[in-house]
Design a protein around this nucleic acid. Structure first.
Length: 357
DNA sequence: TTGTAGTCTGCACATAGAGA
DNA sequence: TCTCTATGTGCAGACTACAA
């Protein structure tokens, strides 16, 4: 199980997943007052929920101030506090009206939100994200432990629901995948043509030089990549790659094909496979500065997304695991993410026009 | 203007668990 | 058993808004 208490990256990768957050709010049943379009809780509500002293929450606020502020913790004072107090009063009034025929005792106690005194000068307010953040940091609270377990279950459940049980092809749900895959297909053609024309016949040349590209970009050969993503031998590894990785592979294939052609023309004969390997090393050294930023980006995106979306760990890219942005979650599992079949259907007319040219 | 009330915050202390 | 560290709690002072 992921350890949320001591990894800020793991915490962010859940808190950036807005789709899962909505589901979490529905399922946890810890209702909040909506203020300025966000669910809000007071510090007292939070400490009651986790069954700890408010001082404990305050200590977390001291030690993780930036992280909690980023997730929506704020101090309300002045005009904003007055507006919030009015919103609380309206909420309490509404609630009392709706349950007036029932003896509900202390309504504030029952719904978990207190009437805020007019003498209160400022008050610490948490958003739902900040509330979850506290739950991820509190190690001594049994309820926080239960919450963390529920968070992980619900996040996995949301992903499974969205992906119909398998996240193998989650990369195909973003808009950019299809154009990148088409581009890559064309460059792949040029690459294999070049290997055919400029390297002596050899059964292993395609696989070996493709592996060289993979190793250069993400430090794994095709076999290792298959194992990590649990792909069978019939499944095409490129159909599981993110658009940024495909673009970089295209660039390598295009660049190396041209480099190979140049070498062939200068020596006036086809290269042996071992010479092609040496030529690739030369090409790699020559382009190291050009590709470095793109390689860094591809490794980081691949390692972080596969960890967050596929629960797959690329051991050799461990140090590249970072935060998956909320935009990324939206791209792959949000409203605008759609399956490849639907996207192809959407682009049918474009394909027909291209075919007709 | 001043007293009051509610909240935040810094400091100190208690407790529990891990490791030597 | 002792020490260290992390975590949680209590207390008191500071701060701020409101009411008289």
């Amino acid at each position: 199980m992921k350890d949320l208490t001591n990894s800020q990256t793991e915490r962010k990768n859940i808190l950036n997943n807005n789709i899962a957050l909505q589901e979490l709010y529905e399922q946890l049943g810890f209702r909040a007052l909506k203020f300025e379009a966000k669910y809000r809780y007071t510090k007292q509500q939070i400490s009651r929920f986790f069954e700890v002293d408010t001082r404990t929450i305050e200590r977390l606020l001291e030690n993780h101030a930036a992280e909690l502020a980023e997730n929506g913790y704020e101090l309300f004072s002045g005009k904003r506090l007055r507006e919030f107090r009015n919103a609380v009063l309206t909420y309490l009034k509404e609630y009392r009206r709706n349950v007036s025929d029932v003896d509900v005792g202390d309504i504030s106690e029952m719904i978990g939100i207190d009437d805020i005194s007019s003498k209160t000068p400022y008050i610490g307010i948490f958003t739902f994200r900040a509330f979850l953040n506290i739950g991820m940091l509190l190690t001594g609270s049994e309820r926080a432990r239960e919450l963390r377990s529920a968070i992980l279950d619900i996040v996995i459940d949301v992903l499974n629901k969205k992906m119909g049980g398998s996240t193998k092809y989650i990369n195909q749900r973003e808009e950019e995948f299809l154009p990148s895959a088409i581009r890559e297909f064309n460059y792949r053609q040029e690459f294999t043509d070049a290997l055919n024309k400029y390297i002596e016949p050899n059964n292993f040349k395609y696989a070996q030089l493709t592996d060289k590209i993979y190793l250069s970009i993400f430090k794994e050969n095709a076999r290792e990549y298959r194992q990590i993503l649990n792909l069978n031998s019939k499944e095409n590894v490129r159909l599981t790659m993110y658009s940024e990785v495909l673009d970089l592979i295209s660039s390598y294939e295009n660049g190396f094909a041209a480099y190979l052609k140049k070498k062939f023309e200068s020596i006036g004969r086809k290269l042996e496979l071992i010479e092609a390997h040496e030529l690739f090393n030369e090409f790699e050294n020559l382009t190291i500065e050009i590709y470095e930023p793109l390689r860094e980006k591809a490794r980081s995106l691949m390692a972080s997304r596969d960890m967050a979306l596929r629960d797959a760990l690329h051991e050799k890219l461990k140090s590249y695991i970072g935060i998956v942005s909320s935009e990324d979650f939206e791209k792959f599992i949000g409203e605008h993410s759609i399956s490849l079949e639907e996207r192809i259907e959407e682009n049918k007319e474009v394909f027909k026009r291209l075919k007709g040219r």
